[in-house]
Simulated scan of single mutants.
Amino acid sequence: MRRLPLSLTAITLANLGIPLTNAACTLLQGGTIISFDEASQTPLILRNLSLLVTNDRIASIFPSCSSRVPPQTTTINVTAKIPSPGDDHAHGTFSRETAGAYFNGTVDSSAGVFWCYSIHDIGSGSTVKEQIDDFKLKDQLLSRRETITTLEIAYDGSSSSSLDEIQTVMELARESNISVPSFLNNTPFPIIFSHGSFMTAQDAILLRQTNQYLSMTPESEMHYGHTHPHGFLIQDQASLGIDTRFTYSADMVTQARLWLRSTRLFLFSQVLVQDWEIPQLNPMSVKQAFHSITRSRALALRRNDLGVLVEGVKADIVLFDGDSPNMLGWEDPSENIMRAVRSGFLDSARRIQGLMAVPELTGTSPFGVPFGMPRREDAVRGDQDGY
């Protein structure tokens, strides 16, 4: 039985040297699994269970004491670990050389990555035509390798480039049948818009009608000052992403924490500043933030078999180390990942809650200030809100 390294906060199965493309059966035994409740569209916590991966899919989830383990199964002890859905995409083309190094490193990592080749005028002698040729070459190389890396296109020139260039890139996308972050058309493949800081209500209606998604990158949007003034209104048709990684944080959890806190601040302020009232509840839940970096990111790619840990889907798994300092004391692991709860916090909180009655936040506060109801966020497409 293999044990996970205790020094890591989050690892993937690829880090353990287990390429899922050719592994017969792998058992993650004894963990706290962040699964998914389809009815409520929220994380479902399954404790002390085991997750069986056959080839590249989740075959079953069952009690750790079960004997339902096929012969020749690689067993990994994940006690005190948290199997979580993972989903990643990346883009970066600054020259043919850097694109090649970036691409080869991604493929060699054995991680499940949606790698986007950025086609744009970079002013370094690499023309759009040369980039397209390079993309086609990488597409051919990828088709001959056993990998779970997926090649996509990123294109930021839809509002500034010539019509001929836009049509050329669009035709490349059609030929390759892939997703294209950054611009819209009536296509059979998913298109993911970047940022959307200046979107309108009509833009939001169009996204919902065509079931295309927005990718918001909180860290860079706040850094550059254009922020995301209306992003919270389209969370049901949006996911979170990371901007250029050589400049900003390279993990999705940081983006989700920033987004959760900035959205809460904005909506709290509407009640506090505009109405001089005390908010009655949190306008956005930690589960919604978790949804935005897991399920929503998969749906943005129209991949219903990613972003959740349930039977039958692709085994796209990240393991969080429950013994790491920022995870000790967790109760609901999906919430703790978003909050970064410190050791001993939950025990202290329960002790205090046992001594104090939780007040009802209705009417007027003891300070004479009325309570007010902030807008409650909707982070799920359809009838549910993910709260």
Rank of each mutant, 00 (worst) to 15 (best):
G368L: 08
Y155L: 02
M170Y: 14
Q384L: 02
L272T: 07
D323A: 12
F183K: 07
N186I: 07
F189V: 13
R350E: 11
F198M: 13
I191L: 15
L260S: 03
D134M: 06
S220K: 08
L272W: 03
V69R: 05
L172N: 02
L51H: 08
S348P: 00
R381K: 10
A340N: 07
N185W: 15
V318M: 09
V253N: 04
I178E: 02
D164H: 13
E38V: 10
N177G: 11
R174L: 08
S215M: 14
P181A: 10
G382S: 02
R57N: 03
S158E: 06
G157L: 03
P70Q: 08
R57M: 05
S7T: 14
D139V: 01
G30P: 09
D88C: 14
M252G: 07
S324C: 11
D251F: 00
I166P: 00
Q212I: 01
L258E: 04
Q131V: 02
T364F: 09
R264P: 00
I82L: 05
G112A: 15
Y155A: 02
I45S: 04
L206G: 10
T210W: 10
R2L: 13
L260F: 04
L44T: 01
G125Q: 09
G196M: 10
P359K: 09
D243S: 05
Q270I: 01
I166H: 00
D164G: 01
L281N: 14
S110I: 08
L137Q: 13
R261C: 10
G30H: 07
L281P: 00
G307Q: 03
F103W: 13
H226M: 09
E130K: 07
M216D: 02
Q72T: 09
S220W: 05
G123C: 04
A201P: 01
